[in-house]
Simulated assay, not measured.
Amino acid sequence: MFLLYFRRYVIKELQINEQIRVPEVRLIAEDGEQVGIVSLDEAMDRAAQANLDLALMSPNAKPPVARIMDYSKYRYDQMKKQKEARKNAKTVSVQEIRLSPNIQQHDIEIKARNARRIINKEDKVKVSVRFRGREMAHKDLGREVLDKFFEELSDVAQISSKPKMDGRNMHMMIEPKSE
C-alpha cells in the first residue's frame, strides 16, 4: 500500500496487477460476486479476460483479498469523494480578544459587541486577560473581568473552556450556543 499525494488529496494506492506478490488470493469478481480462493495466475487471467485490473484490497487478510476492477475509475471516484468531503467540512476559526484586569465597563461592552459579531459568524472567541507587574497578585480581578465579559454574551454564546492561567495570561474560550 502506498500513499499518493495529488494536489491536496491523499489517495491510498493499492497494489495492482504485477505488483501483487502472493501465491493465492480470495477473488471478488467485477460485479461484486465472491469467486473464492484462487491462485494469483488464475486471478490475473480472469482480470485480463475482462480487460480490467486486479487490485489487492486487503493485503493483511488471510488469504489476501483481491478484486477485479477498473483501477483508474476507482481512483477517480476516491478523489471525487475526498473533494466532496472537503467541500462539506466546516472550518471554524478562533479569534482572540484581549482585556486587562483594570478595564472599564464601557470598554468591556465595546469588546463584547465585537465578540458578538464574531460569534454570529459561527466562529470561536478566545478571551484573554494579560497581567502585568503587580497585577499578578490580583488574579481574582481578571476572573471577574472574564465573568463580566461573558455576561454580556451569555444570550448568544457558551463557555467551551473555563478560565485558566497560562503564564501571565488568563484565558477562556467562548463558542456559539448549540441549538
Rank of each mutant, 00 (worst) to 15 (best):
V129G: 02
F6P: 14
N88S: 11
G167E: 04
K12P: 02
E30N: 12
D53P: 12
N17A: 05
K124T: 02
S58H: 12
H138D: 07
Y74K: 03
M172Q: 04
N51M: 06
I28H: 07
G36K: 03
S128T: 06
F2Y: 04
D31K: 11
V65E: 12
I97N: 01
Y9N: 05
K111Y: 01
V94S: 07
I11Q: 08
K121V: 04
R8M: 13
R143T: 01
Q82Y: 13
E144Y: 15
E179W: 08
V127D: 02
K87A: 08
A115K: 00
S154G: 12
D70K: 07
N120G: 11
M172D: 02
G133V: 03
V65L: 13
I110Q: 11
S93R: 06
L56Q: 00
L27E: 02
R7I: 06
I159Q: 04
L52I: 04
I97L: 05
E84L: 15
V35G: 04
L40Y: 00
D45H: 12
H171Q: 11
V125S: 00
Q105W: 03
E18M: 11
L54E: 04
M57Y: 10
F149M: 06
K12V: 05
I108S: 04
D70W: 08
A43I: 12
M170W: 02
M165T: 10
E84T: 14
I28M: 10
M44G: 05
S39T: 03
K90H: 05
G142Q: 10
Q15R: 05
K124Q: 05
R113D: 09
N169L: 12
S100L: 14
V38A: 01
V65T: 12
G142N: 13
L153R: 00
A115V: 00
K177W: 01
S178N: 10
N17H: 07
K126E: 15
S58L: 10
S58E: 12
D166M: 10
K111F: 01
L141S: 08
R130S: 15
I108N: 04
K126Q: 15
P64N: 08
A50D: 10
S100V: 14
D53Q: 13
A112V: 01
P176A: 06
D140N: 10
K80P: 14
H106C: 02
H106R: 07
G142A: 11
D147P: 03
L27Q: 01
A61Y: 15
K90L: 03
V145C: 03
G167I: 02
F2D: 02
R168Q: 13
S100R: 11
D155K: 01
V65K: 09
N120V: 14
V145T: 06
S128F: 08
A55P: 02
A89N: 15
D77H: 12
A66W: 10
I16L: 15
G36F: 09
S58G: 09
P23W: 01
I159R: 02
K81N: 08
V22G: 04
A89K: 15
Y5T: 11
K164H: 09
A29N: 11
I16N: 15
A66S: 14
K87Y: 07
T91H: 13
N17C: 07
P59R: 01
F2C: 05
E18V: 08
A43W: 11
R116Y: 00
M1L: 04
A112H: 01
P101G: 02
S161D: 12
I110N: 12
Y5I: 08
N120W: 13
